[in-house]
Design a protein around this nucleic acid. Structure first.
Lengths: 242, 242
DNA sequence: CCAAAAGTGTTGCCCATACACCCATGT
DNA sequence: ACATGGGTGTATGGGCAACACTTTTGG
């Protein structure tokens, strides 16, 4: 982060991205291990270039961390409390860490008040190639039920993103952004159970999903297990979108 | 708008408010008649002070136009296209109107790129005392189906606000922000019909509303009409909130 | 032939809708 | 008494959930 670069970005506005993945029957979010503290994490995010839209900025920021494009992005809320950074426990840590490496103007710019636009993204976790940024030492997928210590109000941002995801996660086509190309009905059911945190009876779930007419049934998946092999499915729209 | 004042506001971020009212069986929005064009209107809006939250800013901006506080406000979307103002037909008009009255620094500040946070508010239209701002010659309530020529992308903002209102306008307590303290069941039904643009059969509507247990029935409303007098209702929460 | 899990069929319940009816009011 | 519109009760149908059942697979 060079001084001159800051002139290309809009001040006082940031974007925070809640990148959702799905693995081990759990909904996960991608978090950066912060260089500002041993057990401190932060959401992927960044700033908006003066000549790009907020959607493009969010796409770019998610791409920088995941190397994925054309994903499902949704702008779910704005976090605009005037003290959300200055009241944070981590502000002084950040200032102390940076003050020997950057001029005061940069420190001021970074630690000024920021209004943050929250986006969430849905990704196929197996396709993500995590790339760390300047401010994190590593990237980790963490279950939404096992979140570490998060910077500023990022814990609140994750919670609000989960709530918004539940609101908007309909029975039409959001799920396929989190799954590989093909999957069994049970996989899909487990995903819905992870999102809504409740169980769905298999027969009724299957009836409901199939009645939407958005899946096509492929061949069976033989695993060697001594039981009936489940069918594989994929979303009919898959080819059109990929 | 004085030059020095701009230092108190965050640059490049604005708030646009879609203030909904209800009259003549129609959903209305409060629009300012712009001083920048004969048949040009704009949404109430403004900027965020450096030390106030975005919610406080939205409350303040709505108060300035309506003299109402403690209303139902919802942050529904952010409008962040980088060209939303510079591509607008109205930008040059604004620059020409202002350039003789303000120094270039002010003109630049005002006509720079703005990311706008969209809020909508629900108000009892009879309680509003409209107060014009510096940039509008008058304020008018306009039906959402009879919108005039709106500045920049404000037409899109209104449309998105209406869509969000429909999403969030549940059968619990949003409606009472648009109605006077007491109202008949038919009034309420007509409001819902205006919002959702479809009809609701009276008996089923009444059953559904009453089953929510949020209304209390008051005395009858005798109008002199030669038919059964309807009951008046008010929201049980009314006293607590006012 | 058996155990395990996939997948399907059947019933009953709840809720939303539609239809029919009764009630109060002023002329 | 009657026209008008408010308000309530009853039957019908579709969707969802619980239960029971059949099918497929490898040992």
């Amino acid at each position: 982060m060079k001084t001159a670069d800051l002139n290309h970005y809009i001040s006082n506005i940031s974007i925070d991205c809640v990148i959702f993945g799905y693995r081990d029957h759990q909904l996960k979010v991608l978090l950066g291990k912060s260089i500002f503290g041993e057990h401190l994490y932060n959401l992927p995010g960044g700033h908006i270039r003066k000549n790009e839209s907020i959607e493009s900025a969010a796409e770019r920021l998610v791409y920088e961390k995941t190397q994925l494009k054309k994903l499902h992005l949704f702008q779910f809320k704005v976090f605009g409390d005037s003290k959300r950074i200055s009241n944070s426990l981590h502000k002084n840590t950040i200032v102390n860490s940076l003050k020997d490496h950057y001029p005061p103007s940069v420190i001021d710019w970074i630690t000024d008040r920021f209004i943050s636009i929250g986006f969430y993204a849905l990704v196929d976790i197996s396709k993500v190639k995590p790339v760390t940024g300047a401010l994190d030492s590593s990237l980790e997928w963490r279950s939404i039920h096992d979140l570490p210590n998060l910077m500023h109000d990022h814990h609140q941002i994750v919670n609000d993103a989960v709530e918004s995801l539940r609101q908007n996660f309909d029975f039409k086509l959001n799920a396929f952004n989190l799954l590989p190309q093909t999957f069994t009905m049970k996989d899909l059911k487990l995903l819905y159970e992870a999102v809504y945190e409740r169980e769905f009876p298999m027969n009724n779930f299957q009836k409901k999903i199939l009645s939407l007419n958005v899946l096509e049934r492929l061949e069976k998946k033989y695993t060697g297990a001594p039981n009936k092999a489940p069918y594989l499915y994929q979303f009919k729209e898959y080819k059109r979108l990929n």
